[in-house]
């Protein structure tokens, strides 16, 4: 018994000393979306960044809504999100600086292969109209994430309001869980292509609608405003933004997923402007 206690003490001490000895400046707190984590991109990008710069990245993967709130509270150094309208507001309200275009991937509407609402190959607006008219099950993130915001914008574009319909399910969960629920319920869902490809083998869903300019999913990197939160790791944040927009970082983004899925999941955009992507 005494021995167990001694071991516990040693472990506890070990843990606390780990926290205190590592210098604060090498820790970088990154808040990003579940889509970048679920797709596996950050598993490749972050080690490359750490190796090059020596920063130890602590990643918090949340929905874009929460990500921006965390940034507002100063609980992050740098954020990588895909909710352009909300990000602009974030900058305008003085919570962030140095917003840079990083990359895009695209959203797709997926559904059961039987496609009961007959949306295959249609435009996003037509597809939603068909789903609405035929009351096909639609599974929404419902969590104010970038994907959810995009989905709501699509419904608005189609001048339809699915809220409260019994076929419209709001999961309030991440993309992976939402795809699983859509699969179990034989429903449709909007998803980013990266997460879908990563989950494809586990869910009985197919891409039915794709390739519309409105379905672009654009990622920006933002440094949390050091004037509001002087404690943030400004150098680290800048190093991270520099790295993922550098030719080296952009190359990693361009090549990610090609070996596994036969196609890239993300497209580097550091040399483009928002306008060129239609934002």
């Amino acid at each position: 018994m005494k021995n167990v206690f001694a071991v516990l003490l040693v472990v506890l001490f070990g843990l606390t000393s780990c926290n205190t000895t590592s210098s604060q400046n090498t820790n970088l707190l990154l808040v990003s979306t579940t889509s970048t984590q679920d797709s596996g991109l950050l598993d490749v990008l972050l080690p490359a960044f750490s190796e090059k710069t020596g920063y130890n990245v602590q990643l918090v993967a949340v929905g874009s809504g929460q990500g921006l709130k965390i940034g507002e509270e100063g609980n992050a150094d740098v954020i990588l999100l895909h909710s352009p309208a909300a990000e602009k507001e974030f900058i305008a309200n003085g919570f962030g600086i140095d917003r840079r275009l990083v990359m895009h991937n695209d959203f797709v509407i997926v559904g059961p292969p039987s496609d009961p609402a007959q949306i295959r190959g249609k435009s996003p607006v037509e597809a939603l109209e068909e789903i609405f008219a035929s009351r096909g099950t639609f599974v929404s993130r419902g969590d104010e994430s970038g994907t959810h915001v995009k989905e709501l914008a699509l419904w608005k574009n189609a001048k339809l309001d699915p809220t409260g319909q019994d076929w419209y399910l709001e999961t309030g969960q991440g993309q992976g869980a939402t795809l699983s629920i859509a699969s179990e319920k034989s429903g449709y869902a909007l998803t980013d292509r990266g997460t879908f490809l990563a989950y494809k083998s586990n869910v009985g869903l197919e891409v039915l609608v794709e390739g519309d300019p409105f379905l672009l999913n654009v990622y920006h990197v933002i440094t949390v405003n050091p004037e509001k939160w002087p404690n943030i790791n400004l150098e680290g944040a800048k190093a991270f933004a520099d790295f993922i927009t550098s030719p080296e970082g952009q190359q990693i983004i361009a090549e990610f997923g090609v070996d596994k899925y036969g196609q890239p999941l993300f497209f580097p955009d550091a040399d483009k402007t928002d306008e060129e992507l239609g934002l």
Binding site: V62, G63, G65, Q66, G67, L68, K69, I70, G142, D143, E144, S145, G164, L169, E170, T171, G172, Q173, A177, I181
Partner: peptide, 21 residues
């Protein structure tokens, strides 16, 4: 599944509100 109006309970709603910020 935390589906709104069907299976959302207090604890899952708390997680959702937290994830929305």
């Amino acid at each position: 599944g935390n589906i709104r109006g069907q299976t959302r309970v207090l604890t899952t709603a708390i997680v959702l509100e937290t994830s929305k910020g």
